[in-house]
Design a protein around this nucleic acid. Structure first.
Ligand code: SF4
Ligand code: SF4
Lengths: 141, 141
DNA sequence: TTCAATTCCTACTGTTTTAGTCTGAATTAA
DNA sequence: TTAATTCAGACTAAAACAGTAGGAATTGAA
């Protein structure tokens, strides 16, 4: 797994976007102020979100970003994997060096990490942006 | 959350211990060879496991480590939290600086991280060392 | 009694990752 | 024309990670 502030900020920012989605493009400046996240950092993050087609940009004054899809179609997993890369437990040894590689059999804990991985991914797959915006609501399903 | 090689190694080593638990104390040298983990690193890890009373040590020649409890009583969560410290999603901003602190209301994503946290912890709570040793078995419950 | 195998303890270190910052360009509404 | 904005990429300080290194203490066995 991998979950850093970038991922958290991305989710916060996307939620913010969802909240104000009827008011035209939302500028990063606004998000920066509302969510208390550095503007420059947000810019970095939004480039990635844009590349993954989660948002659409409107350049120039009065510009900003707009969600590509409606909040109930955007999975949290999409957001996080867009900015944080791999959501994998099984990095173990980066292939090359020691570890599972030379031994042909998987080590005894392999299944464990694999299942945890699925577990976490399932979680993020189930939760949609919409669920965050519909506040006070329990995310349990 | 927090899961590093230390945590993984710890689980592997404990599983190894469980496998050979009937053969008296298991030395770290043995584990090192079988699991392909640096001896010095294992030592570091086992100090922690010992401090958390997960294993008992036998010093001197023919010494080694022994599980404190039977494998079906040892939760994976115990092992990981013993060596990796906090298993928390909600580190956000280390209290002091920007973030949730000054705002009295929780930010919109708070629940999300909180629930993920519980989700992961539940997972590790349910799986016991025993489950790893009983190989090829599915961990799903 | 000696020695080799072991745990114990603590400090150190190289590398990678994280969490940003900084600079400057391109675009466009007003 | 200008101010607000996105776009792009290089840079960096600090922290975390993944181990090493060196030596002391203990003890079973030769
Ligand atoms: S076999 Fe073990 S070391 Fe290899 S990928 Fe699986 S868990 Fe990681
Ligand atoms: S309110 Fe937001 S910033 Fe504060 S702890 Fe919760 S998730 Fe983190």
């Amino acid at each position: 797994m991998k979950l850093t502030t970038r991922g958290r900020y991305a989710v916060m920012a996307m939620a913010d976007l969802a909240l104000f989605k009827d008011k035209g493009p939302t500028s990063l400046t606004d998000i920066s102020l509302r969510q208390n996240i550095s503007l420059a950092y947000l810019e970095q993050i939004f480039i990635k979100l844009k590349n993954k087609n989660l948002v659409r940009s409107v350049r120039g004054a009065k510009g900003g970003y707009v969600l590509q899809n409606s909040p109930d179609e955007i999975k949290i997993s999409n957001i996080i994997s867009a900015v944080d890369e791999e959501i994998k437990m099984l990095n173990c040894k980066k292939e090359s060096k020691k570890g599972c590689n030379n031994k042909s059999t998987k080590c005894i804990t392999h299944n464990l990490w694999d299942q945890l991985d699925q577990h976490i991914n399932n979680f993020f797959e189930k939760v949609k942006l919409e669920d965050l915006v519909r506040k006070n609501q329990t995310l349990n399903k």
